[in-house]
Design a protein around this nucleic acid. Structure first.
Length: 396
DNA sequence: GATCCACGGGAATACACGGATG
DNA sequence: CATCCGTGTATTCCCGTGGATC
């Protein structure tokens, strides 16, 4: 995933002639260090963060936009760079003999998909601020919070970006605002929902009380084509994907880089399966086919605990009869020793995943008579990408 | 001993249907 | 005809237990 690894792979001469050089580059969960075509957003973010260049604390901000618009890509790249630069600058400040150093700003990027509890949130933030390792248990949440608070007084302040808010199972912006309500902390909340506008009815809008909002619009068609072109040139053999094909995927994806990359990934997977050395238009169809309409972010699926992913992986292998009801799927999955969980747990997890929108329950038509009708299970994430990525890392 | 968290078990509730009841 | 009831599934909800960590 990181550059070192990528270079090393090349050095070993791996898959030099193969159709797919590197699936990771094609993966929608991978963000390149230099995000593509998001210049104006970057400028806006720098405006928001401008006070930090004078040692001030910026206002809280909310970054929003649809799935696949590059929110995570831009913010994580920017924060990565800033924290790198600052740690460099911090070391130079330490060597100068100054009576009072201006407060140092640390930039922290946290993914709320992984930090799902208060404990985990404080832990992850603290972990990227201090050198020592932070305990992962056996200590109270309040203690962690206190420690974070102590760490950020006077000489050090923090700007914390918290990504993927307001999803099922992740914190809301309001919760983050409360949890990070500390004098030396500013946050950049990132989510999909538009901020409530003045004209909104006073309904159940998600409370966002921030000083700045930054909109990340979906990609323009040409920008998405550029992005795909770049990824394809890095991840696929030279000329493996034609320009017209790229344009077709881009237009199909309608500005959503996540879906577009997932489709190209899936197409490459399909071409690989049939032993081809380049992608043809015929590979695109199955590639797009494997990306459900209104697909759930692959990042959400890959953030699930390992055993949930195991269940999903095996679920993909089941035939139509076995996924025709939750109970049938449970039976089939429980019978598979690779799943290794009890029937009740599997069933509960399946319902859990359905409620989270990762699989969809569809009421079956054919009424078999008795009882409440069962529902069929349909995956709502890019299946080919998931299978391939999990198989790559999973082992077994 | 304290703390966080995942498992697992199972009770409680919801729903669909046909048939009985008033 | 409207409503209630019994049966069989599906779905949701809650909580005790135990592993891992400090």
């Amino acid at each position: 995933m990181d550059l070192d690894e990528r270079i090393e792979r090349r050095r070993r001469g791996e898959s030099e002639r193969a159709l797919v050089r590197d699936f990771d580059v094609l993966s929608p969960v991978t963000h390149l260090a230099e995000p593509n075509g998001r210049g104006p957003v970057l400028e806006r973010l720098l405006d928001v963060l401008d006070p930090t260049f004078d040692g001030q604390l910026p206002g809280d901000a909310y970054v929003w936009g649809p799935k696949g618009a590059g929110k995570s890509a831009v913010v994580s790249a920017l924060f990565g760079l800033l924290s790198e630069q600052n740690s460099r600058r911090r070391s130079t400040i330490l060597t100068t003999t100054r009576a009072v150093a201006p407060p140092t700003t640390v930039f922290v990027y946290v993914d709320a998909r992984y930090a799902t509890s208060e404990f985990a949130l404080y832990h992850d933030i603290l972990d990227s601020i201090v050198e020592e390792s932070v305990p992962e248990g056996g200590i109270g949440t309040a203690d962690l919070r206190d420690r974070l608070h102590d760490e950020l007084t006077g000489s050090t302040q923090a700007v914390v970006a918290v990504d993927h808010l307001n999803e099922f199972d992740t914190f809301s912006t309001a919760q983050v605002a409360e949890l990070l309500d500390m004098s030396s902390v500013a946050y950049v909340a990132i989510g999909r929902d538009p901020p409530p506008s003045a004209s909104d009815s006073p309904g159940e809008t998600i409370a966002v009380d921030v000083d700045e909002t930054v909109e990340v619009p979906r990609y323009e068609p040409h920008a998405l084509v550029d992005l795909l072109t770049q990824r394809a040139s890095l991840g696929l053999a030279r000329g493996a994907l034609s320009h017209p094909d790229i344009r077709e995927v881009a237009s199909w994806a309608d500005g959503d880089a996540h879906d577009a990359l997932a489709a190209v990934f899936g197409a490459a997977d399909h071409a690989l399966e049939r032993g081809a050395d380049r992608l043809t238009t015929a590979d695109l169809e199955p590639g797009m086919e494997a990306v459900p309409w209104q697909s759930v972010s692959l990042g959400r699926v890959l953030a699930l605990p390992e055993n949930r992913q195991r269940i999903l992986l095996r679920l993909l292998d089941l035939d139509a009869a076995a996924v025709s009801s939750v109970t049938a799927a449970t039976d089939a999955l429980t019978a598979d020793p690779r799943v290794g969980l009890s029937a009740t747990t599997v069933k509960r997890v399946l319902y859990e995943l359905a409620e989270a929108g990762i699989v969809k329950r569809v009421e079956t038509e054919g009424d078999s008579g008795l009882g409440r009708p069962p529902s069929r299970l349909e995956p709502q994430f890019p299946t080919r990408v998931f299978r391939r990525l999990v198989d790559l890392s999973g082992g077994d």
